[in-house]
Amino acid sequence: MADIRENDITSRDEDGSASVSRLAWISSGLGLLLFLGSVGVLGYEGITRGSGPPAITAVVEEVVPAGPRWLAHIRLTNDGGKTGAKVQVEGQLMAGDEALETSVAEFDYVPAGSEQKGGLFFDRDPRAHALRLRVLGYVEP
């Protein structure tokens, strides 16, 4: 090993082209950048993101007709520190205290610090009633 290196250096000195090719510099520089970048982003995320439970809220984005029925687009936001799996969301059309209609959607994952979108179908127009959204529960992934 040692003498191979010595030979190498000697021969570099001889022909004077000791430089590593530009392409090698570019690719290894890019590698270093990507390496430090990923570790940096992950480390920063690990420090700043809390370790608390998932805190998932659901809001209605838009209600559109879907054939003879109605579709309420919903958006889930997880501001907690952990990811929730199998998150169940229930939407109820309310007439006073009485639920006229109930629809349920299940989200495979709502990662910490991110948003997921979905939809609930209803037979009645949700815009004519109060639409109550509830995040029912989750399991740890």
């Binding site: 590593v20 890019l30 590698g31």
Partner: peptide, 20 residues
């Protein structure tokens, strides 16, 4: 490769290729 700098360049290049 014939010295540790070369190995480092190779390792980082492989990471860049794998990442991309």
């Amino acid at each position: 490769t014939f010295c540790w700098q070369d190995d480092l360049i190779d390792a980082l290049s492989a990471f860049a290729v794998g990442f991309l």
